[in-house]
Simulated assay, not measured.
Amino acid sequence: MNISGNTVFVPGSTSGIGLALALELRARGNTVIVGGRRVELLERIAAEHPGIDTVRIDTADPASIASAATEVLANHPDLNVLVTMAGVMRVEDWHTPDSFLASAEETVTTNVLGPIRLIAAFVEHLRTRPDATIMTVSSGLAFAPLKVTPSYNASKAAIHMLSESLRLQLADTSVKVVELVPPAVRTALLPGQEESEFAMDLAEFVAETVALIEARPDAKEIQVERVKFLRHGAARGDYDQVVRTLNAADPHGK
């Protein structure tokens, strides 16, 4: 993925990593469309950041995805980058189904079906562009489990393998598949995470991420240094120690 000159749609980017990345991509010379569920946040982003387009989208709703895709492609026929950013993370207790089933279903719908439906809505168009990218968003927790978030861990592991598989399938097209692998970042993904000393500063994460994209436009995975402890535990042979360390850090493993 080139760092500039793209038209980028980032659904799930009204806050956190999504918004910070969208703004930095805009600053790097890209046309950026921010997507999200809350109209008031979209209106505020459009007012505070002239030049950024917005579209309402609920990635848990197939009809909303279809409607947003139609709007985005009508207004931006040169779209060549899709970033499947939207996601949720929930603390769950799997001792009894009443305490986790609804959360697990919501997590899978948003984190797995959402990206699948987004890709389905845009892949035919992206194949018509001479240089296109699908950027998926997994997590360090796809590679080492945090005890209190089973469904989130599983959903991000699914995104990792989906990314690997799509890269193989789309190798005969103009579409590249890049997987962004964040560590814990100071956002509101979990209660208290914005103040967690174990999470990476948001501005530092985005700066390092963009620098990596710029330095390696052909990269298959974008891994900031901080996530490599989780990402490569199995390859290093210290996976069990990684899991112990992750889950001993604090109540959320951050």
Rank of each mutant, 00 (worst) to 15 (best):
V108K: 06
A104K: 06
L190Y: 05
P182R: 12
T96K: 13
T149H: 01
S103L: 15
T136D: 01
A120R: 15
A158G: 01
A144K: 10
L212Q: 09
P115V: 02
R167A: 10
V181G: 07
P130V: 12
S103A: 15
A144W: 07
S99D: 15
S155I: 05
V181Y: 02
E164T: 11
R216A: 15
V108D: 01
F100Q: 03
Q169H: 15
L101Q: 13
Y152I: 05
T209K: 11
H125P: 08
S165Q: 11
S151G: 08
A102S: 13
N153V: 00
P217W: 11
T136E: 01
A104D: 00
V181R: 05
F143C: 07
A142Q: 03
V210T: 11
P183T: 03
V123R: 15
Q169I: 09
L146K: 15
A188Q: 14
A199E: 03
S151V: 02
A184N: 08
F198V: 09
R117D: 01
N153H: 06
R117V: 04
T136R: 06
S139Q: 03
Q169T: 14
E124Q: 14
I213K: 02
P182K: 13
K220Y: 12
R216P: 00
K147G: 09
I116W: 12
H95Q: 14
L113H: 11
T110R: 08
E124T: 14
